[in-house]
Design a protein around this nucleic acid. Structure first.
Lengths: 146, 146
DNA sequence: TCCGATTAGATCGGATACGATATAACTTCA
DNA sequence: TGAAGTTATATCGTATCCGATCTAATCGGA
């Protein structure tokens, strides 16, 4: 007999991610953002004027995902994209005042209660992060380019 | 100053989900499956001959996502889709012998070590599941149809 | 200095997610 | 029984992800 789906940690994480997206959706719809776009804004608020590559390292994404997403954020008016004059290959991303204001609103705050973890919250956050880093490290080794 | 990205539980879950997908990718590429397709197969192995709707409840997905995915799994030869004669609206999904064999291989087993949680594994799995259920419940109330 | 190698983004095609809507099959009840 | 309502699945458009590839800019060494 095969293992049960409910015993798969990967499924727990997969479905929890779906759940987060759905919980954020009604909040983000009001400001015209998708879930991923919001996460990118938070990363930009933490450090402004980043290159696409640096932002991608923080988000674990690459230009194939980020470029279209950032273009939409630029159209929406939350960020600016400009080529770095010192190295024209790079594109630097900065928050507009509107983008900064939006992140400062801390739109996710109302969800903390819904998550319902209480004191465990920081511990869970740390553990899931550790799990992610372990997985990424294990995936990376064995497929190195350099 | 805005909160740091690293303190967002939603980002931990989001990026851990990406990490799982990448860790599974080299394994699943060998058998011609995507990550989501594999998860669907595991759900089917747990209970065969389910309707699309029942499978969707387990996976927290609906027909708009499942129908195309299941059609691909059928083409690949891991499942069969057939209208229920008793109620032609329903489509019942069953594993083919090849699909059953594939799930029985427990392809995710080699990753348990890479996850690196040791004894914590079951506790983390439970906590993330609880967090998901809390979020879904909170999202659902306030947008009920009936 | 100049040409090959490297680097940063961008583009493209395939596979999810998801809201909105369509369609066909069942149910209900006047 | 037959029209209205409901249900199960399918289709469509938009937004991620990701591998593969392209292009333009920079770097490095003979």
């Amino acid at each position: 007999m095969a293992r049960k789906l409910s015993n798969f940690l990967c499924f727990a994480v997969y479905s929890a991610n779906l759940a987060f997206g759905r919980a954020y959706k009604p909040i983000l719809d009001k400001v015209g953002l998708s879930y991923t776009q919001y996460i990118a804004l938070v990363a930009l608020a933490e450090e402004d004027d980043q290159t696409v590559g640096a932002l991608g390292e923080k988000l674990f994404l690459e230009s194939n995902t980020l470029t279209p997403l950032l273009k939409k954020l630029e159209t929406t008016g939350y960020i600016r994209r400009q080529r770095d004059p010192a190295d024209e290959r790079q594109v630097r991303i900065s928050l507009t005042p509107a983008g900064r204001r939006l992140v400062d609103k801390d739109l996710g705050a109302p969800l903390v209660g819904a998550i319902g973890l209480g004191d465990e919250f920081p511990a869970v956050q740390k553990t899931v992060t550790r799990l992610r880093d372990n997985l990424l490290r294990a995936t990376k080794t064995g497929s190195e380019k350099r």
